[in-house]
Every structure is written in C-alpha cells, then in structure tokens.
Write a protein that binds this DNA or RNA. Structure first.
Lengths: 200, 200
DNA sequence: ATATGATGCAAGTAATCACTTGCATATTTT
DNA sequence: AAAATATGCAAGTGATTACTTGCATCATAT
C-alpha cells in the first residue's frame, strides 16, 4: 500500500526489529519464531523463507552489529591533547553510541556463550578500543601531559568505568542514580585526570 | 554407597549445582530438566520431587544468593579513614566476593528480565552498596580528607569501575588484559584518590 | 523386624517448538 | 499482458519439553 515501504528488505527489517526486541527481552531460546512473526506482523513462514532458519535471524542481527570502527575513529580523531577534555568526549560518545545500540550489545553479551561466532566478535571490540586508548595515553605521555602509570591498566579502567555505567543504566534504569550520565562521567574523569596531571 | 553422602540435602545440592552450571552457561530456558538431571547424576523425576517444578530450582538458586549484607559489612568495618587504602580494600573484597559467586551474579543479571522477583532483589544490592559508599565518603568529607565533589556520582563511579572490571573478567577472561585485578584496581584508585586529595 | 521416605526406572502425556508443504493471492518486473 | 517474486493461510511433521504416574528398590529410622 504505502509505496514508501515497498523497497526490498522492508519485511525482513520488520522481522529483525521484532526479533531484536524479543531476544533482548527474553533471550534467544525463549523468543519463539511464532512470537517474532506476530510482533513483526508477518506470517511465521515468511520468517523462514527470508532467513532459512531461526539461527539465520540472530546471525543477521549480529552482522549489523559492529560498532568498533566508529568508536575507534572517535578516539583518534577530534583529539585536542587535553586529558580531561579528550576522555570526557570519548566517554560521552561511548555512552551515546552504546545506548543507541544497547539491544545489540545486550544480545551479544547474553548469547555469546551460546553462539561461538558472536563470542569471538564481541571480545574483539573492547580490545580494539582499549588499544586505541593505550595509543592515545602513550602519546600523552610523550607530550609530558600525564604522569607515569600503567597505561594498560589505566586504559582498561577507563573502559570499565564506561562499561560499568552503561550496564548499570541499561539494566537498572533510572532507579540506579538520579545523576545524569554526563555528571557521573565528568565527576570520575575530573578526579582521575586531576590525579594523573604531572603539574598538579 | 558412600555413607558420607548420606546426609539430607545432598541430592538437592547436586541438582542445584548442576542447574547453576547449565543455567549460567546456556540460560534458564535452554537448560533442560533432562540435562540438569544428567549432569547432577540423578533421575529426572527426582528433580521434580525435590523442587516441584523447574521454576522451583531457579527460585532456590536465587534464595541462596544474597551477597549484599556481606559487602555492606565490608565497607563499614575495617575502615582506616585513608581514601586510597579503604577504597582499595573495598575493591579487592568486592572483586573476590563477586568472583566467588559469579555464576549467581550472571544468572541473576541474565534472567532478571524474565523473573520479576529476581529483578527486584538484583536491583537492591548495588543500591545498598552505593549508599554505604556515600556514607563513607561523606564521613571522609567531614574529616576534611576529600575535596568537594558530587558524592553520589563518585560512589556510583567506584561501583562502575568495579562492576565493569568484574564483567569484563567474567565474560572475556584472560584475553581482556594480562594485568591482575589488583594492579588494575590499584592504578585506577591511586589516580582517582590522588585527584580527590585536598592537600594534593 | 518393620515401616517410612527417598530414589530409580519405564512409560506416558499434553503442549510447544522449529520448520515444511501446497496452494491462493497480491505485487513487482519484464 | 505475462512471468517472476513475495507473502498469506491452513495444515501438518517429528522432536523436544516440562511434568506425571505406578511400581520396584534400598537405606534409614523406629
């Protein structure tokens, strides 16, 4: 009817969106093909004709899910070589992006143990981000803008700070804290950078 | 046969242990009663006679799982009113305890959306810990041992740091970083406390 | 010694699951 | 206009799932 929805992939998209919603809510096994089809507003057989089998659905979902390159670019570009400003910007963008794709992240996190291929890709993403952070910190060290610390441990900690906050927000919602994401990240990063400042 | 295993609860314990293993690995729905019984080395019917139904198993698992009081005690006692030392000790004990009960934590985290009663209890635990942390930070502020910051945001950040690290370790294992938990927590807390020190 | 309670074993049940087939209908492409 | 493609609908398939029942066995408590 609506010609705007006539491009190929529209039906498949509806199925994928419904699948993301149900799988992130109940898990892969509990999200039945019948329920996914109902939520997508299509017939159950259409689901199998489009994706072959149920596994093909989650495979498609996980193929869409690759946020590493974007976040890597985020670190290396737009850097002003001020620790607090750079880390705050990184954290803000990390949080915003993770929030946008939180269903993907949660599905990957939850089902990683069940799907080995997801497991591998999931593990590589934070590792790549950590490496970029280490590179940045090393350069800051060369510029004499940071005290001598364990760069690896520091980079990991910055990610823990962000990932921990994201997980708390995603799972506990607004009951976790009334402070904004910006306020929390700013508080932590300010103190952290203050402690890492060579001039003090 | 072995008289040592003749005390009551032994069979139920075996079932619970097998259930914890399978549910944390595959999720509640995918952990079938048949598989749990096999892993426990008991007949499938024994499982239903002991727990009524499958839901009774996860209910029992979650009843055993209450680590909040222990961690709360950990913060309020053994405090020496030195920010770095106290936070490091808190983090070390947090990590050690979480690691010990990681299967419980993971099951609760994963299945919270499916079991509303788990969801509620899961949410209260970090909240209680956060409140204890805030109380400690406030007292440190009264003693003039910490600069003026957003206590709520700081307490949340300390938990994010710990929870983020725990999750990374639990899910990514040794591939995440070669640094020890102690080294990572020490690096972050040292920098953080340095930045929060009023005398600098 | 006997009763009780816990467990194993075999069999079965209704429901649900992922998935298939055949055919009608609509839309798009050619 | 004709052909190809996408979807809906109805019906069905075998496998699996949680859970039940009846009966035998065995250790323990009385």
């Amino acid at each position: 009817m609506t010609t705007g929805a006539s491009f190929s992939g529209s039906t498949a998209d509806q199925i994928i969106q419904a699948a993301i919603e149900l799988i992130s809510e109940k898990g892969y096994k509990a999200a039945t093909t019948k329920a996914i089809a109902e939520l997508a507003g299509v017939n159950e057989v259409t689901l199998f004709r489009q994706f072959g089998n149920k596994r093909g659905i989650i495979k498609t979902i996980m193929e869409q899910f690759s946020y590493a390159p974007i976040l890597k670019k985020t670190i290396s570009s737009n850097v002003v070589w001020d620790l607090e400003e750079d880390l705050y910007r990184f954290s803000t963008e990390y949080q915003a992006y993770m929030w946008k794709i939180k269903d993907y992240v949660w599905i990957g996190f939850r089902e990683a143990g069940v799907f080995p291929e997801i497991d591998k890709e999931m593990a590589n993403i934070p590792l790549a981000i950590k490496q970029e952070l280490i590179k940045y910190i090393e350069e800051m060290s060369n510029r004499g803008k940071i005290i001598d610390v364990d760069f690896e441990a520091l980079a990991a900690s910055i990610i823990h700070l962000n990932f921990g906050h994201f997980m708390a927000r995603a799972r506990l919602g607004s009951t976790w804290t009334d402070r904004s994401t910006e306020q929390i990240m700013l508080t932590a990063i300010k103190a952290l950078c203050h402690g890492l400042d060579p001039v003090k």
